[in-house]
C-alpha cells in the first residue's frame, strides 16, 4: 500500500503539473481538493482518466468520486480493492 501511495503522488504531480510541490509535501490524509492541495474540477477529470488509464477503474458516479478523491489514502484504498491492471 505504501508503494501505491507513493506512486499515486508521483503521478498526480506529473499529470496535474504541480511543479512546485515536492512528494514529501503531500500527506497521505491531506485533502486533495479545497483547502488541502487545492485541486479543482478540471483536476478531478484528469484523476478520473488516470484511474481508468493506469488502473482499469471506470468511475461513472460523481458521488463515488467525491469519496474516492478525498485523499491519497482513500484513492489508494479504492485502487487496491478495484484495480483490473
Amino acid at each position: 500500500m505504501e508503494d501505491l501511495k507513493k506512486e499515486l503522488k508521483v503521478k498526480i504531480i506529473e499529470v496535474l503539473n504541480l511543479e512546485d510541490i515536492e512528494l514529501s509535501e503531500i500527506g497521505d490524509q491531506d485533502a486533495l481538493f479545497g483547502d488541502g492541495l487545492g485541486l479543482d474540477s478540471i483536476d478531478a477529470l484528469e484523476l478520473i482518466v488516470l484511474m481508468d488509464k493506469d488502473y482499469g477503474i471506470k468511475l461513472s458516479d460523481p458521488k463515488e468520486g467525491r469519496e474516492i478523491f478525498q485523499s491519497i489514502e482513500t484513492m489508494a484504498a479504492y485502487i487496491a480493492a478495484h484495480r483490473t491492471k
Binding site: 499529470v15 477529470l45 484528469e46 482518466v49 481508468d52 488509464k53
Partner: peptide, 13 residues
C-alpha cells in the same frame, strides 16, 4: 498514444 481512449481534458481545453 491512447488509441482514442482516456482523453485528458487540460490540453484539449
Amino acid at each position: 498514444e491512447n488509441d482514442e481512449n482516456h482523453l485528458t481534458p487540460t490540453a484539449f481545453i
